[in-house]
Design a protein around this nucleic acid. Sequence first.
DNA 1: GGTAAATCGGACTTAATTGGTCGTACATCG
DNA 2: CGATGTACGACCAATTAAGTCCGATTTACC
Lengths: 134, 134
Amino acid sequence: MVRLSKKVEYGLIAIRHIAAHAGNDIVTAKEISDKYGIPYDLLAKVLQRLSKANLIVSHQGVRGGYSLALDPRTVHISTIIHAIEGTAPVIARCLADGPASCEVFDACTIKSPLTKVQANIEQAFGTMTLAEIV
Amino acid sequence: MVRLSKKVEYGLIAIRHIAAHAGNDIVTAKEISDKYGIPYDLLAKVLQRLSKANLIVSHQGVRGGYSLALDPRTVHISTIIHAIEGTAPVIARCLADGPASCEVFDACTIKSPLTKVQANIEQAFGTMTLAEIV
DNA sequence: GGTAAATCGGACTTAATTGGTCGTACATCG
DNA sequence: CGATGTACGACCAATTAAGTCCGATTTACC
């Protein structure tokens, strides 16, 4: 199936929400969880990953929460996906990492054509920025 | 994860192989299974789906096998994916079927922006034809 | 007609991934 | 200190993907 995981969906909703509240106060995980009906613990983990990837900054303690780390115009959707899933969105196993990643390898006849499709998809995710979805 | 399933990978490899042998003889599932190291039973089912979708024609019996049903220039990659997976490649649950398909619905703030990405991806899979990967 | 080679198709099992939960530790403000 | 927040790893549950099995059917050829 070619589908974003729920984590990514949650992450996009969350970071969009944070971006929409930039300038004002910082946003807590609970706030987002309540507003969008997202399981709190799961959302927390997603936010942690976004924080680790320096897309958002976390503020611990009593008036803590999250705020945007960068200019939303510089944050691409593909970057967000990569931060949450740990890998870039790649449609086939062939195209993943090193050259030995394709099991069939020499028998894999679809690798090269899929590279084109891959490039298109990368562009689809890579040209849209956070600023465009706020 | 945004990734094609193995079934789709197998299907693409298989239909490409069949297309590459068009004109000559028909190709058996075992032949493909052997050549590319694909589990026979699984491949057989994938081929059945392609056959049901009228992308390939099956010939039963002793000298049976599969051959291409259509002009490869008219067979789009998205059609092949759809035939195998049963659904078109859709990146988010929001975008799937009816209007009630998005659980969060009114809270889902990313639906409309993702539609653009979706359109790009549809185009990526929809413009490339079987003829281009042979 | 019998047999072997092929597809057909459903039921089933297993493996992998995803989704979600829990518990505890740490930070910070008042 | 205590309330309110994040940090993080371990864990369990649910779903989906991947693969297997087995009997049925079709058909060419001897």
